[in-house]
């Protein structure tokens, strides 16, 4: 192969796949729900319900997950498509879930906000901010009790650091020296509210450091930097040194949900952020490393084709049976209460 940076090629490929997935999901979600002061459109969306896109944040998911193995576990947030794909989930089944089809990972029960693939250790996106933190900590506790050598990656947003479970979870992980890599994916905003003015003190890593966690801060749009920092921290956690904390600063390209125009943001800020596109940065690095532009274009094209196939599969997949609404609720008293 020309170039000579296969790791960067594969990081770029993952980012391109996430970008293509998010773009397609965004289009399919037009119509959506009534929120943000907007009326619901009369044309029903193919992807219904709140859709939180990670467009612009691909380098965090790709860079961190490149340092995980299949047996490692992961907890995610409401903005979890990137984490799920990067952990190794099948793109077709993800798209099917967004379309609410029986062929989706959650059999149409969860949708975007609850996307999960337990078979690759992805323990779920979450509709409740910071809820994944204690779950990650508990999963790590289990790994330790069972003397497994694997680790847990715990993704959350900047907004999550102001919820109690953040403090409780980090403390717990520190107390029991648990194998958790906490990843604060800091896109600087929480729904419509800039997080900085809502966060006292020096920010996420200062809080983590005060609880004895090893911390790194990184440019979350620079996939090479994320990969390097996450790699070091993941190794350290894997060696049994206890939890570590990665603070990755990035930017949410889209509104909070796909139907949110995000007009509360300063257009200049948005424009600047769009210019600092993690995919463009990675592409430039690839070119510097000698990768031909045509080869990079091919990666982009392949990602789009993969997503087009997924869309076709999702559209033609069957809806779940109404009867399946009563399945997987619980075992005790099964079928008793319709």
């Amino acid at each position: 192969m020309a170039g000579g940076n296969p790791r960067l090629v594969s990081l770029y490929r993952m980012m391109a796949r996430i970008r293509a997935f998010e773009n397609a999901a965004e289009i399919a979600s037009q119509g959506g729900v009534q929120a943000w002061g907007l009326a619901a459109s009369s044309t029903p969306a193919l992807v219904r319900g709140p859709l939180h896109l990670s467009t612009g944040q691909e380098a965090v998911a790709a860079g961190v997950c490149a340092n995980l193995v299949r047996e490692d576990l992961l907890t995610s947030t409401h903005r979890g498509h990137g984490h799920t794909l990067a952990k190794g989930a099948d793109l077709n089944r993800m798209m099917c879930e967004l379309f609410g089809r029986s062929t989706g990972y959650n059999r149409g029960k969860g949708g975007s906000m609850h996307i999960a693939d337990f078979s690759v250790g992805m323990l779920g996106a979450n509709g409740v901010v910071a809820a994944g933190i204690p779950i990650a900590v508990g999963a790590a506790h289990a790994l330790k009790v069972k003397k497994k050598s694997h680790i847990v990656a715990c993704f959350f947003g900047d907004g999550a650091v102001n919820r109690g479970p953040f403090l409780e979870g980090l403390n717990w992980a520190g107390v029991y020296r648990l194998p958790v890599l906490f990843v604060c994916e800091d896109n600087r905003i929480s729904a419509t509210t800039p997080t900085g003015p809502m966060t006292s003190g020096e920010g996420p890593s200062a809080r983590a450091r005060s609880m004895g966690l090893r911390c790194e801060n990184v440019d979350g749009n620079d996939v090479v930097a994320v990969d390097r920092a996450a790699g070091e921290l993941a190794d350290w956690v894997r060696k049994g040194n206890g939890p570590a904390f990665l603070h990755a600063v990035t930017y949410r390209f889209k509104g909070h949900v796909s139907v949110d125009p995000g007009s509360y943001r300063d257009p200049k800020e948005v424009e600047q952020a769009l210019a600092y596109d993690p995919l463009r940065l990675a592409r430039n690095e690839l070119i510097e490393a000698g990768e031909p532009a045509a080869a990079i274009d091919e990666i982009d094209t392949a990602a789009k084709i993969e997503v087009d196939v997924a869309l076709t599969i999702a559209k033609s997949s069957p809806w779940p049976d109404a009867a399946s609404a009563y399945e997987d609720v619980m075992d005790s008293g099964k079928g008793q209460w319709k």
């Binding site: 149409g108 809806w319 109404a322 609404a325 009563y326 609720v329």
Partner: peptide, 16 residues
């Protein structure tokens, strides 16, 4: 509603 969590897909949500 039946004693089930709300499902995402329309046919499931409709049950609730």
């Amino acid at each position: 509603a039946p004693r089930i969590p709300a499902g995402y897909a329309q046919p499931l949500e409709d049950e609730s």
